[in-house]
């Protein structure tokens, strides 16, 4: 029997659809038959489950009202495209703000988080205060809800009346809040990656005369970053939807635009559209992350280098 244990895990979505083909020794026809049967069963069970859920939804006592309030086609159209005369912003346009926010934030987070992770990696008494600051930083921003950070920076920093700092456009404060908060998480992800590189790698690098900094840069960080890409992307999926929180500062991104549509039409369909738009961003990212994880596992099993 030479069945491959990794095969099923690699494509969780295709378990039922991917017949084990000839991996089961001699009985190829037999397994083909089994494969077809598996497909049939999975299709049937999916249909039954979805049918039950749909029945629950459509036969619920308030179904008509919910459909009217959350899934109203004309309102969805308005929410998507906007209506300048009615003062309604297009959620599709607003989505660009979210995309800009998270793309900018991701770049800044990758940098700031690495700086923090490296500071926490330092040794020696001279750098003690730096390490303390880095630890306090991660503790603080991982501990405070992002929404409160958004409020504190969005309303607090302008109130300080500092020249230059306090007169930025609102999105800058929203961006700053996202970067500060997420860098704390991502620095921990980096740190886990750095810790996962075996000390013997550092010993090998140092024994060749590389300084601590050179060993980190050439030997430890490249290996660490490769290992943490999946958890990193996971945090970024979370970041994509948390861009909605900057709405409280008055930035008209998807969440805010949805709120405007809803309070104008007295209908929640705008929020449904908003949710759909966020899924358009996050689902591809989630699939991509899973694909990366599966690829990494395949490579490890095959013993191929990255």
């Amino acid at each position: 029997m030479t069945s491959d244990p990794g095969r099923f895990d690699d494509s969780p979505l295709l378990v039922a659809g991917g017949p084990p083909s000839n991996s089961l020794g001699g009985g190829r026809r037999h397994s083909k038959l089994q494969g077809r049967r598996a497909v049939a069963v999975s299709v049937a069970s999916s249909v039954v489950l979805l049918g039950v859920l749909a029945a629950l939804f459509f036969f619920a006592p308030g179904s008509a009202q919910v459909r009217q309030t959350f899934f109203n086609i004309p309102d969805a159209r308005t929410a998507f495209l906007g209506d300048p005369r009615g003062g309604i912003f297009s959620e599709l346009d607003a989505l660009l703000i979210n995309i800009e926010l998270f793309l900018t934030a991701e770049v800044l987070i990758l940098i700031l988080a690495m700086v923090i992770a490296l500071i926490r990696q330092l040794t020696g008494p001279v750098t003690f205060p730096l390490r303390m600051i880095a630890i306090a930083y991660t503790d603080f921003f991982r501990g405070v809800p992002l929404l409160l950070v958004v409020y504190a920076i969005g309303f607090g920093v302008p109130a300080l009346n500092l020249a230059g700092v306090s007169t930025q456009p609102v999105w800058v404060y929203g961006l700053a809040a996202l970067v500060l908060s997420y860098s704390a998480y991502v620095s921990e992800v980096y740190r886990a990656g750095i810790d996962s590189v075996h000390p013997s790698q550092v010993a090998a690098a140092r024994s060749l005369g590389l300084s601590h900094g050179q060993a980190m840069r050439s030997v430890v960080i490249p290996q660490a970053v490769r290992r943490v890409i999946p958890p990193l992307l996971n945090d970024f999926i979370s970041l994509q939807k948390d861009t909605a929180l900057v709405a409280v500062l008055g930035i008209i991104e998807v969440n805010r635009a949805a709120g405007i549509v809803s309070s104008t039409d007295f209908n929640y369909t705008g929020y449904t559209v908003g949710a759909f738009l966020f899924l358009l961003l996050t689902v591809p990212m989630a699939r991509f992350t899973d694909w990366l994880i599966a690829r990494d596992r395949r490579r490890r099993q095959a013993g191929v280098a990255h």
Partner: peptide
């Protein structure tokens, strides 16, 4: 000026 070679090779895998 002093080279060391380890039991577990410790080549850089990347």
């Amino acid at each position: 000026q002093i080279g060391i070679v380890f039991q577990s090779f410790n080549l850089f895998p990347h």
